[in-house]
């Protein structure tokens, strides 16, 4: 009787300790972001208070300044939206047919073409930025939406192809065969039978490509300019050599990251799959 209660008590303590350690881990991830949220509602004076002000009069002045002030990020949010949407649409247009071929059809040099797509996914962006800059400069496409959206294909397309392949592979083979026996042409089978089966995969891939394009910084800062200035570049609006306007930086960051945070929570079940897919395919079965 006594031993049973002590064992139960010990288990309870153990669970508590475990939960506490895990809680610290989570706090480390969440706290900086929550702190940023809190800071975005402080006046610049409250930000610099020590000890930090836990109770303060919240203000919306930072958001007002960031949205409607002299260095408003509204045009930048628009730039990001246009570039990310265009890049995503282009990417999906090329990725879906290619992924279907790679995942489902038999053709010569299939392994080699899959491997080529995988290799292009691994190229570090800094390694490619110089030719992009020189070429876009030569054809007058620096600081244009088209230039940036097309360049975004370099990292978005290989990723989207491999993610879509994994969804095409999950479609039962019989569905396809039945559709072909039904005298439907291949194109019609793909459009009417296969694509509806991978709707979910298309949605997830679209979300991921958009997220990556929205967050991109290097290409945007080098290949953009005054006209096409994405929100990741505009984060530096409130930082200068003389002074950093902390609360404004925090408010701008919150606005810029709101879409991706919502996407992250909304698509959380798919995040792990989206992040691992390239390596699983490339190193595994193929």
């Amino acid at each position: 009787m006594r031993t049973a209660t002590t064992a139960a008590a010990r288990r309870r303590t153990r669970n508590l300790v475990l939960a506490a350690i895990a809680g610290v881990g989570v706090a480390v991830w969440v706290f900086p972001v929550l702190w940023g949220l809190l800071t975005s509602f402080k006046t610049e004076r409250d930000v610099l208070a020590y000890p930090p002000a836990v109770f303060f009069t919240p203000t919306l002045a930072n958001y007002r300044e960031v949205l409607f002030g002299a260095s408003s990020i509204l045009p930048n949010l628009w730039s990001s939206f246009v570039v990310a949407t265009a890049a995503t649409a282009l990417t999906m247009l090329f990725a879906i047919p290619a992924a279907y071929a790679l995942g489902r059809l038999r053709y010569p040099y299939k392994r080699a073409s899959g491997f080529y797509v995988l290799v292009t996914q691994m190229l570090p962006p800094v390694g490619l930025i110089i030719p992009y800059y020189l070429v876009l400069q030569k054809i007058g496409a620096l600081d244009t939406y088209v230039g940036l959206a097309v360049i975004y294909l370099t990292f978005a397309l290989p990723f989207a192809i491999w993610l879509m392949v994994s969804y095409f592979e999950d479609v039962p083979l019989e569905m396809e065969e039945a559709a072909l026996l039904d005298r439907a042409g291949r194109m019609r089978a793909l459009w009417h039978v296969i694509l509806p089966q991978v709707r979910g995969g298309i949605a997830v891939t679209t979300i991921f490509v958009f997220l990556n394009a929205w967050n991109e910084f290097l290409f945007a800062v080098v290949l953009g300019g005054n006209r096409v200035r994405t929100v990741t570049v505009a984060m530096f609006n409130f930082i200068s050599v003389e002074q950093t306007q902390w609360a404004k930086v925090a408010a701008g960051a919150m606005l810029a990251m709101l879409p991706v945070i919502l996407i992250g929570i909304f698509a959380q079940r798919h995040i792990v799959k989206g992040l691992t897919v390239g390596a699983v395919k490339g190193g595994g079965r193929r």
């Binding site: 989570v26 991830w29 969440v30 972001v33 997220l211 929205w214 967050n215 991109e216 910084f217 990741t232 984060m235 960051a253 810029a256 990251m257 991706v260 945070i261 996407i263 992250g264 929570i265 959380q268 995040i271 992040l275």
Partner: peptide, 13 residues
């Protein structure tokens, strides 16, 4: 959900 938060943020932010 907490773990997803840092992953989706832009590295520059």
């Amino acid at each position: 959900i907490a773990a997803i938060l840092p992953i989706v943020l832009a590295p520059v932010v």
